[in-house]
Write a protein that binds this DNA or RNA. Structure first.
Lengths: 332, 332
DNA sequence: TTGAAAGCGCTAACAC
DNA sequence: GTGTTAGCGCTTTCAA
């Protein structure tokens, strides 16, 4: 079997309590005995059993992360931010894909709780009342990232999506575009759907431009769906001369869809994306897009979670990170 | 405190052993008592403690995944394949970024072992002799994915990178290109560097084309580095009329770098990438590239790991998945 | 500064 | 079918 704390104690001729103390950096150990123990550990290649430790101490130094889809260019960047900060604070991460599926999300929540994680990060999905009920019952802190609960009941890290969308569309409108199209996710999606759409509409109102339903296309976030939906927009009586897309990937779809039809970007149609994923500079023309600090959202949410786990003071449980627009070449 | 198996036993007026039996689906329980227990569990909202269970059973149903960088479009796709199969077999995943850094990798290996994972998936990094020593000492099975050990000592899932590179370059050469450039990763990288470069050289030899050092540029896998390195290739006395890139992202860099200089793709220069990431169809012209089944590599490696963990028979510890070339519009 | 001993919540013999 | 009991490897009082 693998060597235990008892073996080390015996090898060093001390009690297991003393071994435990040196392993845990407890200062109440005479340097000489500390050395004895350290040597024994080395000789025996002792490696503490984190499961036993977790059972005894009720801390696993592991946090659960529920993420819609790790293969998404957006969420994987978030995940990286999370993992970096987790490492910094000595936590490991159990990563689970939810596909934004409610049942899966709730199931995962329970699985993670069974595994005794010290905290949970919930990313991206819609927070329904059913979610809220489960989250409330959680025995460990939960923080949301890139999503939020209507009532602001749970700590959450986001940008102001509606305002960001407003800014982008407003920019277009101020340049005298009369017909600005929008590519959106499903409106049930609080972030990529509802909030951004809301910003779009508000910008229209604010600029006294009538809302035209035929100018908004609901897509499923994929590049291909954007190309397809474009057909609809182009059919509108109010053919768009500018398009705001809820994600970069769909913006690329729009750009290429336009180009494939011989429509020039930005000369004939200007395009603004959202997220500033690495894709944005990997297209020609390079994409003007709303910059959302993805890595930071992950990092900040993990940091906030550590505060909850360590019972530190929380100054603000709902943090709104800044956004801006990166002007590149899909706009004039 | 949270409710334990004792509470349930009391509530149901049975012994804890019986509760354990129903929780674990042991058939030796009378239906009537099973129901009693199930009811008690429901009433008390009992949730088994996986840590205690792990300590007692020596199984955590958790596997460790050491991955170079989860935010990479390539590895995140692999990770998705891993997670899906893990879920299917009821495992969770502890995800750790290594940045292909040897010390980090070895440190992570130890951390995961401390956490008593049931198995480990090691992705992408170089396997030095030092790695091998640590891997050999692992108390749980380890499988490699998208990397391998020279001696084939450890189970590994890959495609034949050298052959794949050969195929791509050979295709170019057969079309009478005399000067085929290559964008490669560092040659220490067994996969993206050495193997692909080897395939490149072999294709040259096979077609009786002299190797010209000025035609290969070592990049750091980024889009930008590819754009930069392009300058060097274009300076060569044997200006390339075709370019083979070790990754799609660098291929995009090359394409845009060429286009920015007014060089047309594929008319003036043909380009072939590697991986067939989602980027490949998100560029114009769409990218001809070597198709590597990323998701499958993840899925198959996780499946193989489950076999090791469950002591199933292994037919082949070194699996080589098929590759092919997707011909699109960066080649004529 | 060190040791003894009581759990942590569960599984897995073993007995009945 | 069901209960008893001895660990799993560690942390954490409490004494000394």
């Amino acid at each position: 079997m693998s060597t235990t704390i008892y073996d080390v104690a015996e090898e060093a001729s001390v009690s297991m309590a003393t071994v435990s103390r040196v392993v845990n950096g407890n200062p109440n150990v005479k340097p000489a005995t500390r050395k004895k123990v350290l040597d024994a550990i080395e000789r025996l290649e002792y490696r503490p059993n984190a499961v036993a430790r977790g059972l005894a101490s009720k801390k696993t130094t592991t946090v659960g992360v529920i993420i819609p889809d790790i293969s998404s260019i957006f969420f994987s960047e978030l995940a990286r931010g999370i993992e970096d900060i987790a490492t910094m604070y000595n936590y490991n991460i159990i990563l689970c894909n939810s596909d934004k599926n409610k049942d899966k999300e709730i199931h995962l929540l329970n699985t993670l709780l069974e595994k005794q994680v010290d905290g949970i990060l919930f990313l991206g999905g819609e927070i329904t009342e059913e979610h809220a009920e489960h989250l409330r019952r959680s025995s460990v802190p939960v923080v949301l990232a890139a999503t939020f609960h209507e009532e602001g009941e749970f700590p959450a890290i986001n940008i102001d999506y509606a305002q960001a969308a407003f800014d982008a569309v407003d920019h277009l409108l101020k340049k005298d575009h009369k017909h600005v199209g929008m590519l959106t996710g499903t409106l049930e999606d609080p972030v990529n759907g509802y909030q951004k759409f809301k910003g779009y509409k508000e910008a229209l109102e604010n600029n006294n431009v009538a809302f035209d339903e035929s100018l908004v296309a609901v897509c499923d976030y994929t590049y291909d769906s954007a190309i397809e939906s474009l057909e609809g927009l182009l059919q509108s009586n109010n053919k768009p001369t500018a398009i705001f897309s809820a994600t970069d990937e769909m913006a690329l779809g729009a750009i290429h869809g336009l180009q494939d039809r011989g429509i020039r970007v930005p000369e004939d149609v200007e395009v603004i994306g959202f997220d500033n994923t690495r894709l944005a500079t990997m297209v020609r023309p390079t994409l003007t897009t709303v910059v959302q600090p993805m890595y930071d959202i992950g990092a900040v949410s993990m940091r906030l979670l550590t505060k909850y786990m360590d019972n530190e003071d929380i100054d603000e449980q709902n943090v709104v990170l800044p956004h801006r627009i990166a002007y590149r070449n899909t706009t004039k």
